[in-house]
Amino acid sequence: MKNKLTKEEVLHVADLARIKVTEEEIEKYQVELKKLLDDVEKVNDVVGYDDEILIAPWDHNADLRNDSDTRMLEAKEILKNAPNHTGNYITVPVVIGESEGA
């Protein structure tokens, strides 16, 4: 087993996480991330468990919220922490393209 990730692998995970990494950092991450990935590899050594999953230790099923109750904040509250805003809008200081999602 190799003891570090390739540079490309580091760049790939950094991209997934949307974190810019410097050349110097890449070298460190090659080793550090590999160490963590080796740790989690141990999950494949565990045997004897069944297929059922535990997503979270919920003690009850979902309660549903009544659609008639409303609670909102004023726009000025909403804008308070926004680094960039114009009028009532929060802004992204560059023009973005088409959405990926939904």
Partner: peptide, 30 residues
């Protein structure tokens, strides 16, 4: 934080979700 976010993103990406994450949830149940 960066390390954990990067590794966490990797563990959920593509087939890894099956290889690691789902397995972890199964063992967690047991």
């Amino acid at each position: 934080v960066k390390r954990r976010i990067m590794v966490g993103s990797y563990l959920l990406s593509g087939d890894n979700a099956k290889t690691y994450y789902n397995k972890a949830l199964s063992i967690r149940d047991d």
